[in-house]
């Protein structure tokens, strides 16, 4: 069974909420990324979302944009990410791994994705395609990788059903009108929309974009199946990129995990 599907259904069976944590592959360097992934797992993270750096990440705010730039300076490609994931899998074969990125890099590495060596990757989220479509529509056939589609506050109700059906990993509800790292959460709207999505989705619905504080995390996990945290982690990674002391990130995630249980 796909690790993502299994992890999310185990959490649901135990009435627990999922914590998904995001980082950009190769920021500040590949060995730090592996170290951070291990730290995420130790701190209670259920799913790791690996950002695939792209020169033109149109859905990202300044914090994650800069991380993409730092990674690209290290010549990170999807190929080096697959190698990195292979390294990580040598000692961790349980934690679900999701790649999040932009279509151009994925179609460029069609073969690598179709091969998905040792089934290391569990899911792919393509930020810049319509929610009803997935990699298959762009000629990439990979049966062991499931799809995460985005639904946003502006998605019309008549599309929610088809997007929810297309999502085989989880539905990613984008909690705000904006880019990653923005801060205009409207909890009422979020909770109404997530409820609507849940009527149509057979997979869990998680909420992400703009979640920073422990309070945000608690509020949003209450109305969803779990939460995704990105920019605030990436910000801390940036601040520690010289010292490479990442304890603070572990503490932050542990605290979030406690709050959403």
């Amino acid at each position: 069974m796909n690790r993502l599907t299994k992890t999310l259904s185990d959490l649901k069976d135990n009435n627990k909420k999922a914590l998904v944590a995001y980082l950009v592959a190769g920021d500040p360097d590949i060995s730090s990324t592996i170290e951070l992934m291990n730290l995420f797992v130790e701190s209670g993270v259920d799913v790791i979302e690996i950002g695939v750096p792209f020169t033109d990440p149109i859905a990202e705010g300044p914090i994650i944009q800069k991380a993409h730039d730092r990674a690209l300076k290290n010549n990170i490609s999807l190929e080096s990410i697959f190698n990195m994931v292979g390294e990580f899998r040598k000692h961790n074969n349980e934690t679900p791994l999701v790649l999040m990125g932009y279509l151009n890099t994925f179609i460029f590495y069609k073969k690598l994705i179709e091969e998905n060596h040792n089934n290391a990757i569990d899911s792919i989220l393509v930020v810049d395609i319509p929610g009803e479509l997935n990699l298959k529509d762009y000629g990439i056939n990979s049966s062991n990788i499931n799809t995460i589609s985005l639904i946003s506050p502006t998605t019309k109700i008549n599309r929610i059903e088809s997007i929810a059906k297309n999502s085989t990993g989880f539905v990613y509800y984008v909690t705000l009108r904006g880019v990653t790292g923005a801060s205009n959460l409207d909890v009422n709207e979020i909770s109404n929309n997530v409820e609507e999505i849940k009527k149509h989705a057979s997979v869990p619905t998680l909420a992400g974009f703009g979640i920073k504080s422990v309070e945000d995390a608690k509020l949003l996990s209450d109305c969803s199946d779990g939460i995704i945290i990105g920019s605030s982690i990436v910000q801390m990674i940036e601040e520690s990129s010289k010292s490479k002391e990442f304890d603070r990130i572990g503490n932050y995630l542990t605290e979030i995990k406690k709050a959403i249980l």
Partner: peptide, 8 residues
């Protein structure tokens, strides 16, 4: 090829 928020 845009983020979902822009589709509508």
């Amino acid at each position: 090829f845009v983020p979902e928020t822009l589709m509508y």
